[in-house]
């Protein structure tokens, strides 16, 4: 990179994966892990986030990873279970400055000349005519226009928001120019810092272009106590959903204790970027060998 960002590599197999409740890992068993009884479980990374944060805490400076990531999900025209991810971290950046850098990358790779910025709550006001901060759960559910076969009133508020976003907003934003959606609710913050002045919002953004979710970025959470609280929250959600509990990555906690520099990071799906560059409608056509031919 011409911006003095150093390429790094991280192990794609790790003992403690990203805990996001709705990111499913491939599990690999390792038979030679003495003195443990039975096989040790390793996970194929869903993103290089934890490894890269440990590098940042040990003083790496600005870094990027361009390589494979894996998600245990069905194939679709937008998803190959093994895919290529570009993830990078910039020290001293916040989500706003990083959004500008992502925009520059999209301008350079896709030839777009402009991008749009739309706050998460503004998107709901504009396309669902609802104020997500004051609406009741029932009012949110009433906004959903498709027929749902399960009871949305029994689902979490975030699930209803995500459904509304996927079905009623995503297809309308970023049609001709990439759209940055920013200031996600704190309940969907993952590992983003909360806004100091508005604790119900998080410094998290996503990029949508032509119906594809292209990138996800944060002004990174650096507080180890909050990190552990978020993990506990993730595992509580996992328990409610009947999903397996994920081990806490103590090495990452230790790294944050030793000091993660103030930084922002973003992960971008390279295959999807190629789809956009080639105007391909199926991710398989960007791959030499798709998942079923691998």
């Amino acid at each position: 990179m011409s911006r003095n960002v150093c390429e790094v590599d991280v192990p794609i197999l790790s003992q403690a994966p990203v805990t996001d409740p709705f990111l499913d890992n491939f599990k690999i068993s390792f038979a030679y892990s003495a003195p443990c009884d039975g096989d040790a479980i390793y996970y194929l990374q869903t993103s290089p986030e934890y490894g890269m944060k440990r590098m940042l805490a040990s003083g790496s400076g600005d870094i990027y990873y361009l390589g494979k990531a894996f998600r245990h999900e069905p194939q679709s025209p937008q998803h190959n279970p093994e895919f290529t991810m570009l993830e990078w971290y910039r020290i001293g950046f916040d989500d706003r400055t990083l959004m500008h850098e992502v925009a520059a990358l999209l301008e350079a790779t896709l030839g777009v000349t402009a991008v749009e910025y739309l706050a998460y709550d503004e998107a709901f006001l504009q396309y669902c005519q609802i104020d997500i901060w004051t609406a009741t759960h029932q009012e949110l559910v009433a906004c959903y226009t498709s027929e749902c076969t399960y009871d949305l009133l029994a689902e979490s508020r975030d699930h209803v928001l995500q459904l509304l976003f996927s079905e009623q907003i995503e297809s309308k934003v970023g049609k001709s120019t990439p759209c940055f959606i920013y200031d996600f609710p704190a309940s969907q913050s993952a590992l983003a810092k909360l806004k100091a002045s508005e604790q119900h919002k998080a410094h998290r953004f996503e990029v949508y272009f032509k119906g594809l979710e292209l990138a996800n970025g944060y002004y990174e959470l650096t507080d180890p106590e909050q990190l552990q609280q978020r993990w506990q929250g993730d595992n509580a959600t996992r328990q409610k959903q009947g999903l397996p509990q994920m081990p806490h990555d103590e090495r990452l906690v230790a790294a944050l204790h030793s000091g993660l520099p103030d930084c922002a990071g973003v992960a971008l799906g390279v295959d999807r970027l190629l789809m956009l560059a080639l105007a391909a409608s199926d991710i398989q056509s960007t791959l030499a060998f798709g998942f079923t031919d691998a």
């Binding site: 996001d20 409740p21 709705f22 990111l23 999900e73 069905p74 679709s76 998803h79 498709s146 975030d158 699930h159 995500q162 459904l163 976003f165 996927s166 079905e167 969907q188 993952a190 996503e206 979710e213 996800n216 959903q241």
Partner: peptide
């Protein structure tokens, strides 16, 4: 049948 998976959200089928 379309499987939809928001990056950080719960999957659903359209």
């Amino acid at each position: 049948n379309e499987y939809v998976k928001p990056g950080k959200g719960q999957a659903f089928n359209r």
